[in-house]
């Protein structure tokens, strides 16, 4: 079992000294590493990272996101994915390579205001993200409720190998689609949605605490009913 060292840090705080092969959310001056975020610093063997507690969503390829169609041209839809970059869904990727603006109408597939689950096909520093809706579970969202959480808390909502999300799904009898951009789609019966929402709210506020899984289980099983946080 590798030794894990954890500490809370703020921007500019020294996280570690020496050589590390893998780092994230730190910057280096000579052999010293300083945090760039408010978060939890973690040193495991040769990797040193700061797990941020707050921050915007920066797209990455292959991320699953939940977005809203905000505009369209003759060849593409513009999708708001809760990020500083507006993303595009090409008509070609939906209608096929022989798409013709004269024959196919974009609004027939997705109208402005529609919610979609999509995957990020391509993104780099020079271009806005490109989306794709081809794949199982992707496409227009017809029913359910969208809950917004901080994008930095998404890993905690999913949990180790999806453990947390499974717990919530089992208790609330709802289906959860967690977008990496911090938007979560919940579908199921109204009581279940309310329960799932309260669990997400708890994770959003107490993601950094150690016994989070237990707290979520207590909330879902109703063992702290009537107890206000």
């Amino acid at each position: 079992m590798p030794e894990v060292k954890r500490k809370y840090v703020t921007p500019g705080e020294l996280v570690g000294k020496g050589r590390y092969n893998r780092t994230s959310n730190v910057y280096q001056i000579e052999d010293k590493f300083y945090s760039t975020r408010v978060g939890m610093a973690e040193v495991i063997n040769d990797s040193l990272r700061v797990i941020p507690l707050t921050g915007p969503y920066i797209p990455r390829e292959d991320d699953l996101v939940v977005g809203k169609i905000i505009d369209h041209s003759a060849f593409a839809w513009e999708v708001d994915i809760n990020s500083c970059f507006s993303s595009f869904l090409l008509a070609q990727s939906v209608f096929g390579r022989d798409y013709s603006p004269a024959r196919d109408s974009l609004t027939k597939k997705f109208a402005i205001g529609d919610l979609v689950t999509a995957k990020i096909l391509a993104f780099d520093r020079t271009r806005d993200p490109l989306l794709s809706v081809s794949g199982p579970g992707l496409g227009r969202i017809n029913q359910g409720e969208i809950v917004s959480i901080s994008p930095t808390k998404v890993p905690r909502v999913i949990g180790k190998k999806g453990a947390m999300i499974k717990t919530i799904e089992n208790y609330s009898k709802c289906r959860l689609t967690v977008g990496q951009n911090g938007l979560v789609m919940i579908s199921g019966n109204p009581e279940g949605i309310i329960l799932a929402k309260s669990a997400l709210d708890l994770i959003n506020h107490e993601a950094h605490t150690a016994d989070l899984t237990q707290k979520v289980q207590d909330l879902l099983s109703g063992s702290n009913n009537g107890e206000k946080e």
Binding site: T10, P11, T54
Partner: peptide, 11 residues
């Protein structure tokens, strides 16, 4: 800025 989670070298 730190609260917004923007990458910063220092406060």
């Amino acid at each position: 800025l730190a609260d917004a989670g923007i990458n910063m070298r220092d406060l």
